[in-house]
Simulated scan of single mutants.
Amino acid sequence: MGSHVVAGVDGSAESLAAAAWAAREAERRDLPLHLVHAGDWHPDREDRDRAGAAQRHPARRALRQAEDRVRAECSRVSLSDEQMAGPPVPALLKAADQADVMVLGSRGLSGFTGFLVGSVALGVVAGATRPVVLVRAGEEALDEHRPERDGSASTDTGYRDVVLAVDLHDACDEVIEFAFEAARLRRARLRAVHAWHAAGPVDPGSGDIGPGQDSWQGEEWLGFLRAVLQVWRDKYPDVEVLATVVEDRPTTALVRASTGASLLVVGHRLTERPAGPRTGPVTHAAIHHVGCPVAVVPHV
């Protein structure tokens, strides 16, 4: 299969929201949308006629519900579906690695902003070699757009900011490019954020830190950030960019910066770990506590 957007669905409210978000993303990218349901049924089992049929029926129902949601929201998107056999995480990873973007649902936490991310979604995010977007239950097209002047919700207004988390110790082209392209597709402003914290009274790695140097450090980080972004500003001249450095913990800074955003873009380094693939602490915290859709972009 060529370039496409894929959404994993299981019949839950969050997966339906993910399918709808994926359909809108497919339209923005002018790509087809492929819906997949992954389960543990195995066509080669001896009892496939009974147990297999019983397991496939909910899968077909989940796919049909997602198709109906997509058609109601994006009637012109080219749509296909597939029921995949085997354990969910390996099956979804296979689907993700063949797509431009994989979209999965995560339940919104009642009472405060955040995600409740299941083991399947975390497994896919940790192991995928292509970008994975997590969408909370209840996410709608209106949430991606700025409100009208009177405060009412509308899809006729421009998109809210795309927020890019930049680690200047490990700035990666794949992550930055994904964010710039997302902003371009939406004609949205890109807000690039780097969080830093002042060293203690004595920093063995960089020498003594004296009073009054925090402001200087902030300006230096801002200069680094602008330099990193300059090549991408040149490549995407139509994207408005706001570069911001924040003296704060990265997770706290990202939650605050993403409030009211249409999308947060974070990176995930692909490394071999003894315990298997997993997300880093900042990405892990971001996908659990940020309220807007979160795009996790893998890099080496």
Rank of each mutant, 00 (worst) to 15 (best):
A7W: 11
V9D: 03
V9L: 05
G11A: 07
S12T: 15
S12C: 11
S12R: 12
S12N: 12
E14I: 00
A17G: 15
A18M: 06
A20F: 02
L31C: 03
D40S: 15
D40T: 15
H42F: 14
R45F: 15
D47H: 07
R48E: 13
R50A: 14
R50K: 11
R50Y: 14
G52E: 10
G52K: 08
H57E: 14
P58W: 04
L63Q: 11
R64L: 11
R64D: 13
Q65K: 09
Q65R: 12
Q65E: 14
A66K: 02
R69L: 06
C74G: 04
S78V: 12
S78W: 05
S78M: 04
L79D: 04
D81A: 15
A85G: 07
P88H: 07
L92E: 05
A96H: 01
M102Y: 07
G105N: 02
G105L: 05
G108T: 13
S110Q: 12
S110A: 13
S110W: 15
G111N: 02
T113V: 13
G114R: 04
L116S: 12
S119D: 08
A121T: 15
V125S: 07
V125T: 12
V125A: 15
G127E: 06
T129K: 14
R130K: 06
P131H: 06
V133A: 12
V135M: 01
V135R: 04
R136S: 06
A137D: 15
A137T: 15
E139Q: 10
A141M: 05
E144S: 11
H145R: 10
P147I: 03
G151S: 06
G151D: 09
A153T: 06
S154R: 02
T155W: 06
D156V: 15
G158D: 13
G158P: 08
Y159Q: 07
V162H: 06
V163T: 07
L164I: 08
A165Q: 04
A165Y: 03
A171Q: 13
D173K: 09
V175G: 03
F178R: 01
A183I: 12
R186G: 08
L190I: 12
L190D: 05
R191Q: 15
A192V: 09
H194P: 09
H194L: 12
A195Y: 02
W196R: 02
W196H: 00
P201H: 05
V202M: 13
D203G: 03
D208R: 13
D208H: 13
I209E: 01
G210P: 04
S215N: 11
S215K: 14
S215R: 14
E219L: 10
E220S: 10
W221N: 07
W221H: 14
R226K: 13
R226M: 10
W232M: 07
W232T: 09
D238V: 13
A243D: 14
T244P: 01
V245P: 00
V246I: 12
L254R: 02
L254P: 03
A257T: 08
S258W: 02
L264T: 02
V265T: 02
V266I: 10
R269A: 07
A275N: 05
G280T: 10
I287L: 15
H289V: 00
V290L: 03
V290W: 00
P293W: 03
P293M: 00
V294M: 01
V294D: 00
A295W: 02
P298Y: 03
V300C: 10
